[in-house]
Design a protein around this nucleic acid. Structure first.
Lengths: 132, 132
DNA sequence: ATTGTAGTTTATAATGATTCTAAAAAAGTG
DNA sequence: CACTTTTTTAGAATCATTATAAACTACAAT
């Protein structure tokens, strides 16, 4: 299993649950956006077993901490995660309530001129809201 | 009272509660960022009365609908609102959990190259996360 | 292998922000 | 004032997320 190494290297034990979640999240070239709830549904469908909701939360947060996932800042009752952790941005279609990837090359370079003492920039995220 | 007109023109009855919230939110040149909870605290402090939490929610949502407030897309357990409804951006200090305004001039011009058929851009919001 | 221990999973309870409800109060109208 | 509509309110309900604590598992040391 190709994810065993990845997990071990991160100090995470390669458990059955984590490996299954890895398969769903990372075993594709496509990046995708998901909520915890959507992920849980996908787990149920894919393998006729279920992983405890708490474990799904734990795992997603562990992966986020290790940098394998990131949250997408958006006003929604549920938190959205993204398997694409490279610097990139999003369209948010207000009508469809769907996220669409924006490559870095789709957005001109962003230069933040203002500085705050003692703080450094961790990330720059652009959300482009779309309407009809 | 200068807000009576404003409320009437929006089809909102100028009640005691709404006027008091207007005073707090709009009676200053400074724009500010707040959560419902912070606003409730401010109400309690400012006038030794209290407005029901449900009313604070109702009022903020009514004002948002009328375009007097906007939500700031951010990953936080509480929803942040902004009295500055013009297009502008934010720093988010992860440690202090505080928002800081970024004028448009603090951010280079942003040019979105990708187009989505039948959709037009409603807003472009940049969130710059800060760490120590 | 067997044991020990630290990490993990799990069901369930607890939390906390937000929304709903339905009755009382206030605003607007004639 | 009498009447209708809107608003306020306290408390209940909801829903995503986090905490808890017991059972389980991975893994290393004996």
């Amino acid at each position: 299993m190709k994810y065993i190494e990845k997990l071990r290297n991160s100090g995470l034990r390669p458990t059955k649950q984590r490996l299954q979640i890895c398969e769903i999240l990372f075993n594709t070239d496509k990046t995708f956006h998901f909520t915890i709830n959507e992920l849980e549904q996908k787990i149920k469908k894919q393998a006729n077993n279920k992983i405890s909701l708490a474990t799904v939360y734990n795992t997603v947060h562990a992966f986020e901490k290790k940098g394998y996932l990131k949250q997408i800042p958006i006003n929604s009752s549920e938190t959205y995660f993204d398997t694409n952790v490279t610097d990139h941005h999003h369209f948010y279609d207000l009508k469809e309530e769907k996220l669409i990837d924006l490559d870095n090359s789709d957005v001109g370079p962003i230069n933040i001129l203002k500085k705050i003492n003692g703080k450094k920039i961790k990330s720059v995220e652009v959300l482009v809201k779309l309407e009809d």
